[in-house]
Write a protein that binds this DNA or RNA. Structure first.
Lengths: 166, 166
DNA sequence: GTAGAAAAGTCAACATGGCTGACGTAAAAA
DNA sequence: TTTTTACGTCAGCCATGTTGACTTTTCTAC
């Protein structure tokens, strides 16, 4: 009976709370990508290049099909961006040993440089937010975000042992 | 002295932890927008239309310049999208009372319908993640995301009383 | 009351980065 | 040997961002 008071208009609160989450994600993501976007624009690149550079840096020797799986875009879309990065010497390709049809991707020194710049801009922002929020909040942040991710990709975070993308 | 042990390779852990955050944000945001994107595509709209519909729904009577401030895009970009939404009867315009130069924006019934569909898709995803994570994690999620947002916009979340965008 | 600033809109041109569809080549797998 | 797979390419379309220039209406300050 005493509980009833606490439940005053729970639908409104829930709705507000959830809408706030949508906005936090919108504004948060917008600002999260703002600084890399500026750095990339200087080099004539866009956000698509960033994603490629990031994941190739994170998984050296990544095959093209794996990268397509991560990004969930078409190979034609990827090829435009990847082609530029290879041409301009940010990414190198070599045939796979076990499967020579594959072109395994790696960052060159130049690519690694750019990757570090871009990642630094974002990690610094996140590090500030993490420090300000505290360890417990960080855990909560990770838990909730993980819950937004589709199950298949989620596994890679829960089981970081096998970092592969099929 | 005893602290030293705890600090074994703190740089590596920090780097990994921060990179994980970048990826959580990337995958989380990607999946967060996936369902609305599909709904919108059916109507020939895109994510830009979603943002306009969302913020007009959230702030009925919003002026165009305020919307531009929220979205941080040019008025030419907005005008294309907004023009379609007005033309197709999702959004209505009326002159401001105090300032008749303004065109205050509001959702029509049709617009409200679509807004509800889109928001429902996202709030359901977030609600699932919130339920699975628990109240404490939700607080942490909000705190960290808030920390990613630039100070000016952040105020609007901390002080929800005045929901205006100058 | 007039000058200037502000709110909104418009036209034009361009870039990025998604998409589909069709087709080609080399290598692996059946 | 046939079929499938990994990768690439050409061509064209669409959505959504940009800059720059210009107009109209209305408000504000002097």
């Amino acid at each position: 009976m005493a509980d009833v008071k606490i439940q005053v208009n729970p639908l409104f609160l829930r709705e507000e709370e959830l809408r706030q989450a949508l906005e936090l994600l919108f504004f948060g993501y917008r600002d999260f990508t703002a600084e890399p976007d500026r750095l990339l624009a200087e080099k004539g690149f866009g956000r698509a290049h960033h994603r490629v550079i990031y994941f190739v840096g994170r998984h050296p020797g990544l095959a093209v099909s794996h990268l397509l799986g991560i990004l969930k875009i078409t190979k034609q879309s990827l090829s435009r961006v990847l082609g530029q990065l290879v041409e301009e010497g940010y990414i190198s390709q070599r045939p796979g040993e076990r499967d020579r049809r594959q072109r395994l991707l790696e960052l060159t020194d130049k690519g690694r440089d750019l990757e570090r710049q871009l990642t630094a801009a974002q990690t610094e922002l996140v590090a500030r937010a993490y420090r300000a929020a505290g360890a417990e909040a960080v855990e909560g942040f990770r838990t909730v975000l993980l819950g937004l991710i589709n199950e298949k990709d989620r596994e890679r975070f829960l089981d970081p042992g096998r970092g592969s993308f099929e």
